[in-house]
Write a protein that binds this DNA or RNA. Structure first.
Length: 547
RNA sequence: GCACCCGUAGCUCAACUGGAUAGAGCAUUUGACUACGGAUCAAAAGGUUUGGGGUUCGAAUCCCUACGGGUGCACCA
């Protein structure tokens, strides 16, 4: 925030020595000796200008008009870094700026006027959600939040398929369990059927409703059971998502691509563009022609049924046709192979694939007591997301899924997740909020007055200045996290805020201090509460007033 | 076999997307308030960023290579 002003004076200085640059990137040095802000602009210009970085830096500084009320000192260090040392007054100004934004602090408008579509979860209604879906949901919801915080209008979308083989398999699995319930224990369970206990639950429901009447495995019976299974699974999925505080705006049914003619028209178009051909009774798509690292694939089987690639491309096409400025897919690592094909297909149809960002997350492994909990879908013994939420709570589940980068495999340690103490990183963050709320409550009880105006210049303790400095970063962290689609940047940042606050709170007494100092510190605490609460909101985690 | 992801402290992970002396938490060791919630704070110790080359002012980050882990490679979705 405050360095926008400083940036302008640097650009002006550069202009005076004949260099035109649109913007300058400032970094926050990790080491205090390197100042509060630092730029490597002289080094990046060195090659272009064929001059030594130090000389360029020298020139820029010579033309820089320093505002001495904000900047204490500017110096050259190392290979040509320009380091800026800010005056405490700069922090006080920044604090006032943050406070004027109120509860909106952290929001920005870089995406305002733009629209985004974020697709996540997208599980088919054939079973309960498992941990992978949980990671998907947490990431998707948080990415959506981040985009909203940077000004985007976001559509949260769920894509599902309630047709095809998998649903038939669901129906036959239920039928088999149903047969067992009617006493036909000999009935063979389908080889690739769904083994989870929930199938038995659905079968029991069918048994209660229909008794023994569904003895024949005919089309009508299977259709009834399929519908029943779908409804049950969808209800289960929605219920679990609700527990995780996740909602979605649109549910896009794959089937609609067939009924509205999207699939047919796509096939026609591919044919017209000479991107498909017939071979061995099937229709193939010339992926290899679009991108020579790809190979041709079947898009319509010889039986006449499309493979998943065709609807995938048709579906993504609708997203481009719906004219979003940004399209985000949250996919598990098992979908990694399909992405290049979809992208190639979309590009061949003439769309701008730079709008499409695919966020791949790696798998989740669950650990308990130092042992890995195996999660096998086949055996049906998987630890469901629902059970996990019931066991450790939605806040902990979400935070654990969000505290690591998506591209690394996530180890979910139940032992730590179950702990309701200092070992659990979620509580460290939430405790900040609860502590401040507790403070405010005491102020109210003691009938102390909080003045609206206060003298920020009283905040000169190093832990006060450090806390303010970290709080000033919130907006840019949010922007960067949104831009890179990396929710864990928020978790990391909030940990820093929490750490800085606890240090401040330890070092700087509030209640009982001289009233103008107390008042200033209360305002700093309130500002911290705002940032903490906003950050937790982005992550979809509650901000408790007491714990 | 081919493609993609990953390899950082004993463990789980960061590192501002190529920046300066690679940082946190847990575990270990040692300290700290007769007041705001000790679910806290301060400090010590812990590293050849898997090995080896290369690119440049500068590499955990980019390229090549070897090794190790994961995922995917159907006329399944």
């Amino acid at each position: 925030m405050m360095h926008r002003f400083i940036e302008l004076s640097f650009i002006q200085a550069a202009k005076e020595i004949g260099i035109d640059i649109p913007n300058i990137n400032f970094e926050r040095p990790k080491i205090a000796d390197h100042g509060h802000l630092s730029t490597n602009i002289a080094m990046t210009l060195a090659k272009l200008l064929k001059r030594k970085p130090q000389d360029i830096a020298q020139d820029i500084i010579a033309h820089l008009k320093v505002d001495s009320t904000i900047i204490d000192n500017v110096e050259i260090a190392g290979a040509g870094f320009i380091n800026i040392y800010l005056n405490p007054h700069a922090f006080h100004l920044a604090m006032m700026q943050m406070i004027t934004m109120g509860s909106h602090y952290g929001r920005s408008n870089i995406g305002s006027g733009k629209t985004a579509n974020v697709e996540y979860v997208s599980a088919n209604p054939t079973g309960k959600l498992h941990l992978g879906h949980g990671r998907n949901a947490a990431i998707g919801d948080t990415v959506s939040n981040l985009l909203e915080w940077t000004g985007y209008t976001v559509t949260r979308e769920y894509y599902f398929n309630n047709a095809g083989n998998q649903m038939n398999m669901l129906a036959t699995s239920i039928f088999a369990r149903y047969q067992h319930l009617t006493g036909n224990t000999e009935y063979l369970f389908p080889e690739d059927g769904y083994h989870g206990d929930y199938i038995i639950e659905i079968a029991e429901k069918a048994f209660t409703q229909f008794g023994n009447t569904l003895s024949d495995e005919n089309a009508e019976t299977l259709s009834t059971l399929r519908k029943m299974g779908e409804e049950w699974c969808f209800a289960s999925i929605m219920n679990t998502l609700k527990k995780m505080h996740i909602h979605q705006d649109t549910f896009f049914n794959e089937d609609s691509l067939y009924t509205d003619g999207s699939i047919d028209s796509l096939l026609d178009e591919l044919k017209k563009k000479n991107l498909s051909y017939e071979k061995e009774g099937a229709t193939w798509m010339k992926f290899s022609e679009i991108d020579d690292s790809l190979t041709d694939r079947v898009i319509v089987k010889s039986t006449g049924e499309p493979t998943y690639r065709l609807p995938d491309i048709a579906y993504h096409r609708t997203k481009f046709e719906r004219n979003y400025d940004l399209i985000v897919d949250i996919f598990g690592a098992d979908h990694i192979a399909t992405i290049p094909d979809v992208k190639a297909g979309i590009r061949a149809l003439g769309y701008d694939i730079s709008k499409l960002k695919v966020l791949i997350y790696q798998f989740v492994t669950l650990w308990d007591n130092g042992e890995q909990v195996k999660m096998s879908k086949r055996s049906g013994k998987s630890y469901t997301l629902d059970e996990l939420i019931d066991e450790v709570g939605a806040d902990v589940v979400r935070f654990f899924f969000l505290m690591r980068g998506a591209q690394t495999q996530l180890e979910f340690d139940l032992l730590i997740a179950r702990e309701q103490n200092d070992k659990n990183p979620v509580y460290y963050l939430q405790y900040v909020h609860a502590r401040i709320c507790s403070l405010l409550k005491q102020i109210e009880e003691q009938q102390l007055q909080i003045q609206d105006t206060f003298d920020a210049s009283l905040l000169i303790h190093s832990s006060e200045l450090n806390l303010i400095s970290i709080l000033t970063r919130f907006e840019e962290v949010t922007i960067r996290a949104a831009h890179n689609l990396e929710p864990q940047m928020i978790s990391e940042y909030l940990r820093e805020v929490a750490s800085a606050f606890h240090s401040f709170y330890h070092d700087c007494r509030i209640l009982g201090m001289e009233s103008s100092l107390m008042n200033a510190r209360i305002h700093l605490a309130i500002l911290t509460k705002t940032v903490m609460s906003n950050g937790l909101t982005i992550l979809g985690i509650s901000s408790p007033t007491s714990m």
